[in-house]
Design a protein around this nucleic acid. Structure first.
Lengths: 355, 355
DNA sequence: GGTGCTTTAGTTAGCGCTAACATTACGGGC
DNA sequence: GCCCGTAATGTTAGCGCTAACTAAAGCACC
């Protein structure tokens, strides 16, 4: 009879991808050292590090995310709460988040969150998904009740593009005030004197900031904002239609209209055409956000572009760091970061018409 | 001296979530049985199954996805390739895909894919991400070269909303021909006789199907499509503007315009307003796709809604099944599925004006 | 009553990685 | 020379789950 050591090895792996062990063998080190190289730990001498990197390249090794998070006990799960009807915003946002989440092997849970929903229902949802942190794009980032619920549960969260960052939440924003200021300055530079402004929904904190930027630029140019040139909107196309009609019905209408978002700018453009006005020859119209409608309508809108993907990516990073910190029992300071916007010049703005 | 069994147990778990072992203990069964219940395996008697389910509920147990995919050796990674400028489509698509991927613990990789990119570059990207299957929303679903590359690499793929399903790829579609037919019938039912049609980009397979549906409905109503009422567009707002101008400049203009997507319908609506026409009182305009612009413009567009989330979900399911089948060495037959569309009635369609 | 089959449940080992500890190598101070 | 400290690497065990096997129980049939 053969010896007992003959126990048939049960194999489950078939032909799959290389593992740390394979890399370690090729590099002549232990698997642990490979792990350390992968995780960029300091305590590996450069020579060893190079050997390992070489082996990784040779084998075309990619770490197994599942094994990492299982062994590391990490397992970050981030919820993206959205109530936002703006699908384009969401999709850019998702792409940014997914990139970052993929890189840090965090899992993303996307949850639609109707405004009226009770806090308990929401909390139950988050619990059942074992959510560790929450990403809040607008307009949810400004929902005080929601923020409070999350804070009470001790969940790290990040407000994206809010105008009023809570002191217990991370935030990634652009400077709406400065962006609106820059756009207004641009219009002034093109010679416009009667510049109208269509405001956004007053419930969203960013709206006030945009108006403030507009006002400041006018003030700096030595002229006050004429009250009759500031019309209230609520970010909808419909409200833009009404606002533009009101503006163009004035005895001395503006030569430029700055709308607080692209939907309202597109509406203003439609109204202008209905009035037989040539955009931008006779009337300049600019928007804000650079959503798809900005490049859909004709002429394409000059607007302010927010780096949505970057904001999402950065927000996700902050959350992952926060989860890590929380796990280690550290407090982890709250960060408020401000990214750069971009003034996108297209075809809807022109010089002040000579009358 | 104490016995050797006294070896200090190294503990890594701290206070984390319940595991199969916890559930098993509570239910009085083995962990394996719990696993079987979770995976809905047949070989567990109803009584046992109930005990386990009860314990799961009591402990509020949620399986650890990382451990499952590590142990199960599954690890599906699905790439979503997109080149599509329509962000709204993408975001709905992403939400559907993420739901399904989350449920089956598959990982999603989102890759933007410029049209001109060489096949090698793309293939390298997919390899480096260890992609197991590919999701192809329009317009990439119609890219024959791309499809060929993927087929040659033996990757399962699913074409979403294509008009021409490849015999080597899965496909999830709606019946574009039937949808266009339904919309045209709706217009006929409202009394319209001169119904114009703005076509889509002829490179996308769905375009021809939509035109065909329109033609069939007219034919069934005993009238041929008048060639002068069919104008070519390419899915852009700009092309819709030109097409609508051409149509309304006709000696006897149409009383209804059916555009092959919402962007062009919105453009037609803008042109109508510029011509002083009341929509829908004097001119009916309908679109296709139910993208956000349909509800942004005023009046809101009557259109055809595709169940994008469902299509994404179903497509993802097909891929996961295909990956599984491939892993087991089975061929796995290619499936072409057709989901239901929805005719969304809003405010842009009306009865034929009495002249 | 024994043989063989099926159905249900349990055991064991291991997926790929890394935390925690162990070891080795080396340098400096007395 | 010896001890100790530090830096670099190795060893061991285990994260939570499930594939693959084993065992037990039930049943049919000769």
């Amino acid at each position: 009879m053969v010896e007992a050591g003959q126990t048939r090895k049960r194999r489950r792996r078939t032909q799959s991808a290389p593992t740390v062990a394979d890399v370690a063998r090729l590099a002549g080190v232990s698997p642990m050292t490979v792990s350390r190289v992968i995780n960029r730990e300091a305590s590996v001498v450069e020579a060893t590090r190079d050997k390992v990197r070489e082996a990784i390249r040779a084998l075309d090794y990619v770490p197994n995310a599942a094994a990492r998070s299982l062994a590391g006990g990490r397992q970050s799960r981030i919820a993206l709460l959205h109530s936002n009807p703006s699908a384009s915003y969401l999709s850019e946002f998702l792409v940014g988040t997914l990139q970052e989440a993929g890189a840090s092997d965090a899992q993303l849970v996307v949850e639609h969150c109707a405004g009226g929903e009770s806090a308990d229902v929401l909390a139950a949802k988050l619990d059942s998904h074992r959510v560790d942190a929450v990403l809040l794009p607008p307009p949810l980032c400004d929902d005080a009740a929601l923020l409070a619920v999350l804070r009470d549960r001790g969940l790290p969260m990040v407000q994206i593009a809010t105008g009023r960052a809570a002191d217990f939440a991370h935030a990634v924003t652009i400077d709406d005030e400065r962006a609106a200021h820059a756009m207004t300055r641009h219009l002034l530079a093109r010679g416009h004197e009667r510049i109208a402004f269509i405001t956004g929904d007053t419930n969203q904190t960013a709206s006030a900031l945009r108006l403030a930027g507009y006002r400041r630029a006018l003030g700096e140019a030595g002229r006050a904002a004429e009250p009759e040139l500031v019309v209230e909107g609520d970010f909808t196309y419909r409200s833009g239609l009404a606002a533009a009609e009101a503006l163009l019905a004035r005895p001395s209408p503006p030569t430029a209209i700055f709308a607080s978002n692209d939907d309202m700018a597109a509406a203003a453009s439609a109204v202008a055409h209905r009035h037989g006005l040539d955009v931008p020859r006779q009337l300049t119209i600019v928007g804000y956000d650079d959503t798809p409608i900005a490049t859909t309508v004709w002429p394409e809108l000059t607007t302010i572009r927010q780096p949505i993907q970057d904001m999402a990516r950065r927000g996700t990073q902050l959350l992952i760091a926060a989860i890590e910190a929380k796990r280690l029992g550290k407090a982890g300071s709250v960060r408020h970061e401000c990214l750069d916007f971009e003034l996108v010049l297209r075809e809807s703005d022109g010089d002040r018409p000579r009358d």
